[in-house]
Structure formats: structure tokens, C-alpha cells
Design a binder for these strands. Structure first.
Lengths: 211, 211
DNA sequence: TATCCCCTCGCATCAAGATGTGATAGCGGT
DNA sequence: ACCGCTATCACATCTTGATGCGAGGGGATA
């Protein structure tokens, strides 16, 4: 089994050294690079093509460019790299920003070195490890609340909305539903009042959002 | 420490019994109910208010109503319950459907009983445990691919699109960007030509689709 | 320099949408 | 029988959007 090429970007010397010692001393890993800032790391990747870690432990809070901001640049230079974010805080915003940018795991720094080691192994096997509390935030993103309420619109109103969202004009909608143009207008009026909006654009967005 | 009230819904007698034996024999848990189908379980919840598990292990593949379909009903009867899905397969569709319905963890049945036990404890502490391969699918949902291809629009055009999609009118867009209404119109015109569309509605849908 | 693309702006016109006032009719519940 | 809700339609008015024609300035490039 070839060792896993590993890189670390972390500004705190204490944490950096403890990671370096623990992971670097493990024959499963080969610590190919350690940097103290995004700028540092990116420059190294650019200058030396041979440095190609397969997993990166990346601090989220860095002086200068933050870890999250740097992810796109890293991915551009080494597309296949798997990124594990390390963080002190567990703010939802940061979590989602990091995941959207392309991170594949998100760990609180409070976890043990063993957990971090296992996370690296897991990620390298194509998995993903999340701290439990972070995972919970992620799943809550999918089901913000048992708010499965289908809009407070009547069946007829929903039909009109569907037509509009399908790109039909009022006229075409009227034809399709076999009613008059003015009736469509009236429905739209009521729909706007109900949804507290006032333009077709907002209607389409609302309708598309909840799908 | 009070034991965690636990329920199990699982049709396979072998898995059900092994869960029952292992978890039921652990003093950390109190196994308040075991059902073989959704229908069974829902009926029990309805008939006996006292049965109020705080964590539910729910098979996804059940005869009759599936586990996913049943989640809304369960949540309606016992809103506070934390649901851990158990599954044989790891299809993205099912995973997301379950999470959207309100499940808070998702486990492959291949994992060990110890892992399942730990997942229950984790969930009860307000966390969430995901099998690594499932977690990976979840994170990929956020960053489908480094497919950051911004449409064939110029930077300026994209700014206008963003405004429109944000619900602004041409007038408001013009004000926000500090240009004239006519200029916005001109941009829109070009954007429509480029994207081969001819209405604000289509623009919004296109823009929203690729996000 | 000549050329091309992009951003900017103006005017004009017609279509589409937003909004108000009002009216008729059916259906279900009190 | 009366009330409330929904669906239907009409007319009027004003705003917004779609589109065509034209034009000047700036930057990049051949």
C-alpha cells in the first residue's frame, strides 16, 4: 500500500506541529508539504509540479486569503485533491461555503488526532467524514423545518402558476386553460396578494425554489 | 443518565432481531417499540400516546409504505423524533429524498452494530452520523463538479442577470449598477440574443437552473 | 491605423404585465 | 336564506418589458 500524499495548511504552529508529528510519523502517510498560509501553499504548488498531495488538511481561518477563498485556486492547480477543512467554529455559513467551494470534509479542531487520521483515510477511500454536529447542520439544510407546505394556493391558482413558470404568457395560459385573459389576470392578482409578491419574476423564483 | 427511548421499524426478522438483541440489551437504551412495517408503526403511535421514542431506526425498504414515504406521518405524530435511516443501497436519490423528508442520519446496513449504536448516541446528542460513502454523496451535492462554467456572458452582462434574478426591475437594476435604463435594456437585448431566449421568465429559469 | 468587441446611452413602438373597481355565479356551511 | 370563498369575466390605466435603429467612447489586437 502506497502511503497517502498529504499536505497541511495551518497557521497555528502548535496545531501544525502536532499534526505534522502525528501524521508524519505514521507510515500510512507521506507528508509532502506543510504551509502556513494560502499564498504560501499556492506558490509552492505552482512552482513545483511534483508536489501533488492527494489529501489536504486546510485550516479555514488563515491570515491573508482564507481557506475557503483558496479552494478554487487549489482545485485549479490540482483538480483531484480531496480537501478536509479544519475549523475552530461551526458556523453554518462557513460550512456551506466550504462545501460549495469543493471541500469534501469538515472537521472541528476539537476532535482528536486519531479522528483526523481516520478522516484522512476515509476521504482517501472516497468517503467523507463530518463531525457529528456539523453533519447535523448539513442535514438540516435539506429539511429546514417539516415545512412541506405546498403553497397556500388553490388548485386553480397553482395551475396558473405552473403555466407561467413553464414560460407561457397570460394569453397562452388563458388559451391552454380555456379561460379568458382577464380571468388569468384576476388569478395572478390574487396569487400575488397571497404570496406577497408583485412581479412575474418573483413568482417564478418562488415556484422554482420550492421544487 | 436516562436511557434513550428507541424504536425500530424493520421488516427483515434477522436484522430486526439482531438490532433488538444488541441495542435492547444495552442499558443506555430503552427499546420502546419494534415494528415490521410503516403501517404497523404509525398505528401504534396513534393508539398509544405514551410510546414516544426519541430516536427511530427506520428501514428504507419496507413492504407497503416505504420508510421515506412514512417520515412525514411520523414527524406529524412525534415532531421531535430523530430518524436514522438504514439502507442496503446507497442511491443518491433515496438519500436526498430521506434527508429532505426529515431524516437526520443515513446508514448503510453493512456497518457494524457498534457503529449503529454510536450513531444513535450521536444523534441523540444532537449530531448526525453518515456512512462515509454516503457523506461523500451529500457533499458532492453541494459542489456537483468543478463545473464553474459561467455562461457565455460577459462580466457586465452577468451582473445584469444577477440583478434581474434577484427580482429587480430594469429600473432598479439601472440604479443599482449606476447606468441608465436604456443601457440595461441594451444589455438585456444582447443577453437574449446570446442565450437564444426572449423573455425575463426564461432568463430567470436559465439562471436558476445552473446554480 | 483600422477593426472589432464591449459598454454606454437615447428614442420610438408595441406587447405584456400589474392593479383597481366592479360584477355574476356556483358551492358549502351556518 | 345568507355568508364566505372561489372562479369567472370586463374595462381602464399605468408600468414594465421586448425590440429595432442609431451612436459615441475605450480597449485590445492585427
Amino acid at each position: 500500500m502506497k502511503p497517502i500524499a498529504l499536505a497541511i495548511v495551518e497557521d497555528d504552529p502548535i496545531i501544525r506541529d502536532s499534526l505534522r508529528t502525528f501524521l508524519g510519523g505514521d507510515p500510512q502517510f507521506e507528508l509532502v508539504h506543510t504551509a502556513v498560509s494560502m499564498e504560501d501553499f499556492l506558490q509552492t504548488l505552482q512552482q513545483d509540479e511534483r508536489i501533488s498531495p492527494s489529501v489536504l488538511l486546510l485550516d479555514i481561518q488563515l491570515p491573508g486569503q482564507s481557506g475557503i477563498e483558496g479552494i478554487p485556486s487549489i482545485k485549479k492547480l490540482r483538480p483531484g485533491i480531496d480537501i478536509i477543512m479544519l475549523t475552530t467554529f461551526e458556523e453554518s455559513d462557513k460550512i456551506f461555503a466550504a462545501l460549495c467551494a469543493g471541500a469534501c470534509s469538515y472537521l472541528s479542531k476539537r476532535v482528536s488526532l486519531v479522528t483526523i487520521r481516520d478522516a484522512v483515510l476515509t476521504v482517501h477511500r472516497g468517503g467523507s467524514y463530518m463531525s457529528p454536529s456539523i453533519a447535523r447542520k448539513v442535514v438540516e439544510h435539506f429539511a429546514p423545518v417539516p415545512k412541506k407546505e405546498d403553497g397556500p394556493l388553490t388548485a386553480r391558482q397553482q395551475e396558473i402558476v405552473d403555466c407561467i413558470v413553464d414560460g407561457l404568457s397570460y394569453k397562452m395560459t388563458a388559451d391552454k386553460l380555456g379561460i379568458s385573459l382577464d380571468t388569468v389576470r384576476t388569478h395572478i392578482k390574487h396569487i400575488y396578494q397571497t404570496l406577497e409578491i408583485n412581479s412575474k419574476g418573483e413568482l417564478i423564483r418562488k415556484a422554482l425554489d420550492k421544487k
